[in-house]
Design a binder for these strands. Structure first.
Length: 111
DNA sequence: GCAATGACGCTCT
DNA sequence: CAGAGCGCCATTG
């Protein structure tokens, strides 16, 4: 259960921001183990309070999982935090990508 | 223990 | 920019 390491990183993702699997893996000290991150989240119990919905793939897209429709749940959760999908069905990573350590400078007038 | 599979990522075409 | 190929590792049959 080295998953604990991954879960801890995911728990650090602030609301309104998203991280990629690879990013989480690297932060967890497991560079290149993006798949394992996805595997860990897959095994995550539904009752978990972990913000797993803030984790997307490198394309900024919500990865499809075994159960169809579940991705819509993630999409809805993200929207609730202000992260909306673009017309192409992807998330503007450049804007919502979580930069660990980087201070939220002036929360730009992006909005 | 070997082979197949999977919430992925990077590189090349 | 999109699609195909290869890599990486833990879990499962």
């Amino acid at each position: 259960m080295s998953y604990q390491r991954i879960y801890r990183v995911v728990d650090r993702i602030p609301p309104g921001r998203v991280a990629t699997y690879g990013q989480v893996a690297a932060l967890a000290g497991l560079p290149g183990h993006a798949r394992q991150v996805g595997y860990a989240l897959h095994a995550l119990p539904e009752s978990s309070r972990l913000p797993w919905h803030r984790v997307v793939n490198a394309k900024g897209e919500i990865s499809l999982r075994s159960m169809p429709g579940a991705e819509l749940v993630q999409q809805q959760r993200l929207a609730r935090e202000g992260v909306h999908l673009q017309p192409n069905g992807r998330i503007p990573l450049e804007q919502v990508r979580w930069k660990p350590g980087a201070r939220v400078r002036a929360r730009r007038l992006t909005r």
